[in-house]
Amino acid sequence: MQSEVYFSSIDSKKHKSPLFKISKLLNRCEPSSVFSAGELIAVKTHFGELGNTAFIRPVFLRPVLEMLNKLEAKPFLTDTNTLYVGMRTNSVDHLHNATLNGFNYSTLQVPVIIADGLRGDNSTEVPIDGELLKSVKLASEIVSADGMLVVSHFKGHEVTGFGGAIKNISMGCSCRQGKLDMHSDSRPFVKADLCTACGRCLLFCASKAIDINPKACINDKCTGCAMCISVCPHGAIQINWNASSATTQKKMAEYAKGVFNALDSKLIFLTVILSVSPACDCYPGNDRPVVSDIGFAASKDPVALDKACHDLVIKAYGGKDPFKEKYPDVDSTVQLAHAEKLGIGTTDYKLIEID
Rank of each mutant, 00 (worst) to 15 (best):
S123T: 14
D129I: 06
S106Y: 08
I114S: 04
V112R: 03
G130Y: 02
V112C: 14
I128D: 00
T107F: 08
L132W: 01
F103E: 01
G117W: 02
S123D: 06
Q109L: 04
I114N: 01
E131S: 13
Y105E: 09
I114R: 00
N104W: 04
I113Q: 05
L118N: 07
V110I: 14
H96P: 00
V110M: 08
F103N: 00
D121T: 15
E125P: 00
V112G: 04
N97F: 02
P111W: 06
P111Q: 09
R119I: 07
D116E: 11
D116C: 09
V110E: 01
L108R: 08
D121W: 12
N97Q: 08
P127T: 10
D129W: 06
G117S: 08
P111A: 07
T107K: 15
N122S: 13
V110C: 10
T124P: 01
I113D: 11
G130W: 02
G130E: 01
N97K: 06
D121F: 10
D129G: 05
S106I: 12
I113V: 15
I114M: 06
R119L: 15
T124S: 15
D129P: 02
Q109M: 07
T99Y: 10
A115M: 13
E125A: 11
P127D: 03
H96C: 03
D116Y: 01
T107D: 14
L132G: 02
L132C: 04
T99A: 15
V110N: 09
R119N: 07
L118E: 10
E131H: 08
D121C: 08
T124Y: 04
T107P: 03
I113W: 02
V126H: 01
H96Q: 10
Q109C: 12
P127H: 05
N122I: 02
N122T: 05
T107L: 13
N97L: 09
N122Q: 14
S106D: 14
D129T: 12
T124I: 13
V112F: 13
N122Y: 14
G130V: 09
N122E: 12
L132H: 08
Q109P: 03
L132M: 14
S123A: 12
Q109G: 09
I114K: 01
I114A: 01
G130M: 10
L118H: 04
